[in-house]
Nucleic acid binder design. Structure first.
Lengths: 196, 196
DNA sequence: CGAAAATTTGACATGACTCAACTGGAGTGG
DNA sequence: CCACTCCAGTTGAGTCATGTCAAATTTTCG
């Protein structure tokens, strides 16, 4: 719970009452590696803050390929926002890549939180602004750069995550096949060898 | 100004005071077709609501190709959110595809608006939530579908816009070349002819 | 009308995918 | 501790989707 309070406090300092509200609204929950957090077709009922471990959110298309929209490691948020707000079945899946501890809040409690402490309207607005900016950058990258550039950027942007993810995960985040990612890696190894 | 008030009222009804605040905070501004709204390297100082016409936001890459992140026609918002909030130079360009009337608010006035009427924290949070969901859907499409599927989806999703945009604009929104879009269109015409 | 821009078309190049085979751990059960 | 399986990763050959460049054609608009 402390990492969540720290997260909020870094954005906008909370009063004692607000700290208590957070403590009573969020519930810790454990997921084992490979466990499903949100199933396809289910409404996304919770907003999750990852305290430990790593979750991913992805879609499986008609052909059976998976496409990762987001990884969430420590101190990151994850949910299907569309499903959560519209209370409609999700097309996405969330599951655990590692044993994970998340803090969850459901929709009603979040709405109650907004009513009791409007500061959270602002906190979640700012949170969303930051996520929006990152998502927009990723989209721009995706439509404007080659797979190799996107991979390099991923390495630089998330160096800690890289060691924790298999190449299959990274490939499906970048929107390429694992085979092709393998070739990309080979290329860069060769080119950096030839430089030295 | 009325379309903006209508937009807010549809989300959350405003009090008379709040209506006055909106009237005094937003300033109408006209842009001629092709006029630049935000130049590369400039800080994005304003949040724009398009009342009439159409704006686009895009990036020009090293090779000189343009990549459209967003079109904004009537009743849509547009700005470089990252630049606006961090008060850093933008890498993006906003310009007018048609003669346009926008209502703009600058950062200080927006912050003042949030302070005077916290309802706007919520309004902009909800606005952002909707934009986030659409952006995420677009990213998913982009990493998971073929150019043809993305084009068909664009046609269905924005039927009114399609007639107002050149294929060059649509292609750079979809992340493909105009030449390839032309071939895609040809293909579908032929296949729909053969069906009839 | 005439110039500039948008669109189309052709020939060719390349990035990325597919499928199948192979390699090398990392568990797992005996 | 071994034998076995299973999955991630690699590699090769062939294919498909999309890009590039240049030229021809059509449309737009001053």
């Amino acid at each position: 719970m402390s990492s969540l309070l720290e997260f909020f406090n870094k954005m906008i300092p909370l009063s004692a009452t607000e700290v208590d509200l957070v403590r009573s609204s969020f519930v810790p929950r454990k997921f084992r590696k490979k466990q499903t957090v949100l199933q396809e077709g289910e409404v996304c009922t919770y907003f999750y803050f990852v305290a430990e471990g790593c979750l991913r959110m992805y879609k499986i298309d008609e052909k059976g390929s998976t496409h990762v929209l987001q990884f969430a490691a420590e101190n990151q948020w994850i949910l299907d926002l569309g499903s959560f707000h519209s209370v409609q079945p999700s097309e996405l899946i969330i599951d655990a890549l590692e044993n994970t501890v998340a803090l969850q809040i459901n929709r009603d409690d979040l709405i109650a939180l907004y009513l009791r402490a409007p500061k959270f309207d602002r906190i979640f607005r700012v949170l969303l602004e930051n996520s929006y900016v990152r998502l927009q950058e990723r989209l721009l990258q995706t439509i404007s750069s080659t797979a190799e550039a996107r991979y390099q950027r991923f390495l630089n942007g998330y160096p800690q995550l890289v060691n924790r993810l298999s190449q299959i995960q990274i490939a499906s985040y970048l929107g390429i096949t694992p085979e092709f990612l393998s070739r990309l890696r080979n290329r860069s190894v060769i080119s950096s060898k030839s430089k030295s």
